[in-house]
Computed example of a mutant assay.
Amino acid sequence: MTAMAMLLAPWALAVAVSVPLQRLERAFTPAWSVRLAAGMALLFAVATAMSSAAVIALVAEDPTPVGIGLAVLAGTFLAAGCVRATRHLLRAAASLRAGKVFRGSTARRGDLLVVDDGTPDAFAVPGRGAVVVVTTGLCAALDRAEFAALVRHERAHLRARHYLYVQAAELAAALNPLLAGWPRLVRFAAERDADERAAGDDRAVLARALARAALMCAGSRPPEAATLGAAAGDVVRRVSALHGPRPGRPRRWAVLACAAVVVVTVADVGVTTDLVQDRVVPEEGESSVVVIG
């Protein structure tokens, strides 16, 4: 019973926390949300992976028909997760290499690169020599204050290293599909955090710039672009947030609840890791059932 509870705990916690993700988002400031959500997603992915490995290790020691079936499921989950995670890392590496075109451009002025393109767009390119890329179409469509606000927003992404947190959440979802909702939460929190960092004293300027840029981008892209609906909804929420007060402190109950979940999950990872090590490579003089009898 103890072994079963230990193996099921990370799965139960991952599902229990994944269901009320919107409450998690509302309980913390954007700066807290982007870091906490990325860290928890990756922790849950590691915990459930170690739980699966522990199932395989236990069954290998004392195989039964039911146990063998569970081990096959656990092995399939681990193998599929590793394949998805490898593909994700390869795509991320390819994207980082592709960014050299912008980072190494001789046309850049400091950390800003303006490219001759009528499509209104702006994005941050991370990596060594990170740069903010904006198109001439966007430059022409916004006034000076709005343009400066959007550039500050992209610079905020680079300063806060939001791309690392987004990649961590996406890696977690690749390892465990139950965590598929976490990357969107982290991406939205990253945008909100960049908004708050860039808004300055006049939040209305950035709100107006976001709304205008979103409308122009939507009008310049083909209707088959599948991400437009979700992106438009996110922009509405971001603009509404900028018209409201600045985020306050995280709620105490949420901090305590997340701390408890993290402590329990970390402890579970430690126990399952030790269990797998004891079964696979027992230490000299140590019983293979030292952790769980």
Rank of each mutant, 00 (worst) to 15 (best):
T86R: 15
R91L: 08
A49S: 07
T48F: 00
V55N: 04
V66S: 01
L58Y: 03
T48S: 03
T48A: 00
A57P: 02
A71Y: 00
H88D: 09
R84M: 10
E61T: 14
P63Q: 05
L73Y: 03
T48N: 03
A53N: 04
A45C: 07
A60P: 03
A45F: 07
R97V: 01
G81Q: 02
L90F: 05
H88S: 13
V46N: 11
L96A: 13
V66Y: 12
H88A: 10
S51C: 04
S52H: 13
L70C: 09
A98D: 14
R84P: 09
V72H: 01
R84D: 11
A93T: 00
A47C: 00
T48M: 05
A57E: 06
G75N: 02
P63N: 01
I56P: 00
T86F: 08
I68H: 08
S51A: 07
G75L: 04
R84G: 13
V72C: 11
V66F: 11
G99Q: 04
D62M: 12
A53L: 14
T76D: 10
A92P: 10
L89S: 08
H88I: 12
V59L: 08
V83M: 09
G75E: 05
A98E: 15
A98W: 01
A54R: 08
R84E: 11
T48D: 01
L73A: 15
A98C: 15
P65H: 04
M50E: 13
T76R: 10
T48K: 05
A60I: 07
V72L: 10
A80P: 06
A79S: 15
V59N: 00
C82G: 14
A85E: 06
I68K: 06
S51W: 14
R91K: 15
P63G: 01
G81R: 05
S52G: 08
